[in-house]
Design a protein around this nucleic acid. Structure first.
Lengths: 226, 226
DNA sequence: GTGGTACGGATCGTATATTATCCCTGGAAG
DNA sequence: CTTCCAGGGATAATATACGATCCGTACCAC
């Protein structure tokens, strides 16, 4: 009597549940993750919860201290900068590798998303903007054939997603600039520009967002090279 | 009465033990990892072993199938190619970011390692070559200030390390070319070449190794773009 | 008042036990 | 000869139980 509706393992369930809460900011950085409480809440024993947390730890979303417990990863400016820089590199490459595989439909979809970004500039909601922004970039790099690279990009987005809600909350002015750069990027792809140009544009786009944040928070800091 | 000798958790111990075995090819790809056997061998219960395996899973070293068990990740050509391509991108960027931070000592050390690579070309041992090769590149990118990027690079090396012993076993001719490219790369760094040039050289170096492998295994395959 | 120490609650770490699932093998039906 | 089904062994998944460790607090000595 096979239950067709598939039984997701409890471990998996706990993993997804936690990840969701972390991404959704219900569990903010520094939040203490107590095994027993979570197990209780999810109506399971602590064993699956432990495994879920181990996986999250390996992904860098939570930090663990022996005999003390887990907490949602704290993010300092350095970590944020490093992650953004890494994402710039990964996403830039993925976008370039995907460029030649984008269909006309994909590009239409991307332009539509960017149009929504433009519209949202009035009555600005950083949360919404970030979400649509992610969708926009996802369209552009999802066609990348290199699944490993894709996984790395997605992992970095998740990492950042829970660390800072949105750079755009901090530097509202960056949003306008951002959507313009999106158009440039789309044009490059559509006209079949050389891949290195596309990569440079995509990387530069994210680096610029990072730079905007850094110069806003630390006006006297040095800009990142490369 | 604090025991100074530190008590590494069993979970940690199992994790390191397995990782070691996998890296050392004692556990080859496809090898079945049975919880009870491992627990027995390490003189512990299955719980810590499960956690260790979960961590390895998150790192991509083992694959897991629900209710079936874990096995050391199989690597197909596609996976290998994707991983190498990703490494090319990551390592290229890390090397460029590290370039300005390398000391004269670092460069001396790197040249010394490359000298050893040259020497080893007679009486060629792919295993040794790969190992020293890793050391060489480690020196070049270790000075990268972006710890996140560094972690990604190292993770990818580990991934590849256990998947294929060495590309150089398959394409011996590549080794000579490789050490020459090392010299070029070192010269670029030493003369303070523009970072994009350094990045391109470092990325191209690894891409070339991948290409050599691919064209050797699949002479009719298409070369990777970018 | 300050420092240290001892106790206790909270929480983690691991072992053991129980249940669920898969896969293989063998036999019977067609 | 092939196909299907049943049963059993192997193994994973989870629950429960117990011991170990940490950390905060209160008490005592000085």
């Amino acid at each position: 009597m096979n239950q067709e509706w598939a039984a997701p393992s409890k471990s998996q369930h706990a993993y997804l549940w936690l990840k969701e809460r972390i991404a959704g900011e219900e569990l903010t950085p520094g939040y203490r993750l107590v095994l027993a409480s979570i197990a209780d809440e999810l109506d399971m024993s602590v064993v699956p919860v432990r495994e879920a947390i181990r996986r999250l730890e390996a992904e860098g979303l939570v930090t663990f201290e022996r005999n003390v417990g887990a907490r949602v990863s704290m993010i300092d400016d350095t970590g944020y900068r490093h992650s953004m820089e890494s994402l710039a590199i990964l996403e830039g490459a993925a976008t370039a590798l995907a460029a030649r595989h984008l269909t006309a439909d994909d590009l239409r979809h991307a332009r539509e998303l960017n149009r929504r970004l433009v519209e949202s500039l009035d009555d600005f909601d950083p949360r919404l903007f970030t979400s649509v922004n992610h969708a926009f970039h996802s369209v552009l790099f999802a066609a990348c054939q290199n699944t490993r690279l894709l996984a790395l990009v997605e992992a970095e987005w998740v990492r950042l997603g829970h660390l800072r809600d949105s750079t755009f909350s901090f530097v509202p002015g960056r949003a306008q600039e951002s959507v313009r750069e999106h158009e440039v990027l789309l044009d490059l792809i559509e006209t079949g520009a050389p891949l290195p140009d596309i990569e440079r544009a995509a990387r530069g786009h994210r680096s610029a967002t990072l730079a905007a944040y850094l110069s806003h928070e630390h006006p006297d800091g040095l800009p990142a090279a490369l």
